[in-house]
Design a protein around this nucleic acid. Structure first.
Lengths: 221, 221, 221, 221
DNA sequence: GATGAATGAGGCTTCATTCAT
DNA sequence: CATGAATGAAGCCTCATTCAT
């Protein structure tokens, strides 16, 4: 993918100093991404200039471009990480979903009680800063949403099957899954970005999950 | 609209030529807003330069600034119009909501079957282009969301009262209303902006409304 | 000079209505100049846009251009009026100067005690806003200064002659006259524009005049 | 100079290349300031566009903004340098002033015979281009004048004390000092900017100083 | 004579990206 | 590998002036 990284990919046994270097490099990249995350979330993607990001990460502008391709790449990298984290937490919860629906309940809990309060910057970047920035970024956003929606979708289908029912169509399940993502998104936007009601997030999450589960159970009547 | 040009506000009977001028002015503003709407939705807010907008509206750049304060103002004006339209259509449907929940069903139908297919540009601007652009724009976005959410919220509370039930708390109703807005938003984003499945919008809307109504009715069991 | 004004210059007996019109026109021009004076002095020449001036004068922008050639012309007209006023007041005082030097004392009194407190806007325009604006404006400024300096110069020469002395050269008298104008200028700038010490202006003027007269009398020793 | 680039201020021993860079940076800034000085004095502050300045300095527009904050900053930097130079030359002369008044005579000589002929651009910027440009610029102008006036003022007070006399009030000394500055200013404007009589500047300066000293000595009679 | 909408050149400034050291 | 000075295209906006009504 990147010309310079090929050296490491040729898994030749690395010398000690080479290992150290690699560690340092990864550490440096993390610092840069952290700086970008903070500034993107705090000042907004456009207002956060590359120079400011470099300053915050305590590197030079030139160094920035050694670790990332361009500014868009910075946003994409962050976005993908956020998507990965989210899917790691939510996806695994959804995957445990069975008849009991506890998986869905658990996913909601994790999102509102763990992810949101601990990663407000990620929320801001995923739901605000990365919106409508460019075709590439939108593609990554869509990809993340698609995967998350798919996770939920599979869970819903599994529940249905266990109940001996079926969705009217594949679309129906997808619509429901998409709706759930939309709920999570807007609730986080309202109560974390626009208002800071972190302390109410637990209640909010429970209400939301109740709403969702009500909607689902309704299918089986 | 403009501090100094209040002469019209003093409702002195306007001469015929003055009336014609005013009409022309309003027409011109509409042309400009239309050009901006098309370009913002098509190329994105940032890529749509003021020059391009002027060209599209077939006026000079200077004329643009005779009708609007600055680029941000252009977006805000569009946003407010969209918010007004949405609330006009959805709000009135929600307001008719009673025990039967037909109001909510109707609101869903209007949004997915009428508004979305007929105003894809509005959807793109409201849900994509206006996100995270500046504090002023965000304030207007929030304001629109707040009002829409409030409309839904009132409808929900009314339904509950008619059922002789009550929400656990005011927050619960608000959370449900916010969730509904989130569902509408993401579904429109998925099936209108990211995919163009206008022809499926009817089914999608019905599924979404079923989900919502299921969630609501669950409250009364 | 101006194509349109030629009608009046052909001093044909004017009808009553034509007379009224002319009066109105002159009144209107005064209003416009007044508005410009206030805005130039208050916001500065560049920040005072033609539109603002028109608004303040309660006419349209188009009308402005019926009465003046362009913005520069506005400044020049003001400047010339100020020059005329100044010369009217100071010049006549200087002209009465004889052996006794009371004329010079009187001129100082008039400038500091009458002109400055009553015409701070004129001071701001003459000494601040018109400085370095364009070649045309500078030419008018120079012209005004030259005339004032000449008035002083003549007075000084007369005093000398009456004392039976002579200036070493014509330049000497001119330098002294120029110096006196510089004193007046900077004192007004310091104590009227930069600080507002209008109430001290009398003392300041007296000190200044004492300084001047001391310098002059020294010639005769 | 720049908030972030304080690294040099922590006086860590700089490497050779870092030292060279710093030298180059300072040299470049001087080139830019020189270009601005020439253009401001020659074409006027407003007519000198940033592009023209960049061209004259043989750098790109972007580079300009690496060295200065904005156009106003360019003028302020020049102004402050001029103020520093003036005070360096005049101030030190004034400070040597004692009973004999030679200090004052010397200051006049330096200004008219050395500073003016060698720095006509500085004169144009200080007395013409920087007048009434903005509040910030005016503040710097005032600051420079205040310091120069204060230098003169201290000298006058010292002379008086040595003569066993006293000024009627502090204001009196200040007024005299301000007057002297005004004389210098207008004489330079008349005989250097409006007319180019550099060759007469010596005589002019002597006449001016004679006038001043006459005025001062008059205090002791 | 008066109006005010329209013009468009030109100004200042930002900022992602590059590259010689 | 790291640096940071340099680039220059591109953007937004202002405003004196004109002219059809």
């Amino acid at each position: 993918m990147n010309k310079k990284k090929n050296k490491q990919e040729t898994k030749a046994p690395l010398s000690k100093s080479a290992l150290r270097r690699q560690r340092e490099r990864e550490q440096r990249l993390k610092t840069i991404l952290g700086a970008a995350q903070t500034l993107f979330a705090g000042e907004g993607y456009h207002k956060a200039s590359m120079e400011k990001i470099a300053d915050t990460a305590e590197v030079s502008v030139g160094t920035l471009y050694f670790y990332i391709k361009n500014k868009e790449d910075l946003l994409v990298k962050l976005l993908d990480q956020i998507g990965f984290d989210l899917r790691n937490m939510l996806g695994s919860a959804f995957k445990t979903t069975d008849v009991s629906l506890t998986g869905i309940r658990e996913a909601g809990r994790i999102f509102f009680e763990e992810f949101c309060p601990n990663n407000p910057e990620s929320i801001a970047i995923f739901f605000r800063e990365s919106v409508g920035q460019s075709e590439v970024v939108e593609a990554h956003r869509k990809n993340i949403f698609d995967k998350l929606i798919n996770d939920v979708c599979q869970a819903l289908i599994r529940v249905c099957e266990n109940q001996g029912t079926r969705f009217q169509s594949n679309l129906s399940a997808e619509v429901m899954a998409t709706s759930i993502m939309g709920m999570f998104e807007r609730l986080a936007y309202q109560y974390l970005i626009w208002q800071d009601r972190s302390e109410d997030l637990k209640t909010i999450g429970q209400d939301a999950v109740d709403f969702i589960i009500g909607g689902i159970e309704n299918l089986f009547r």
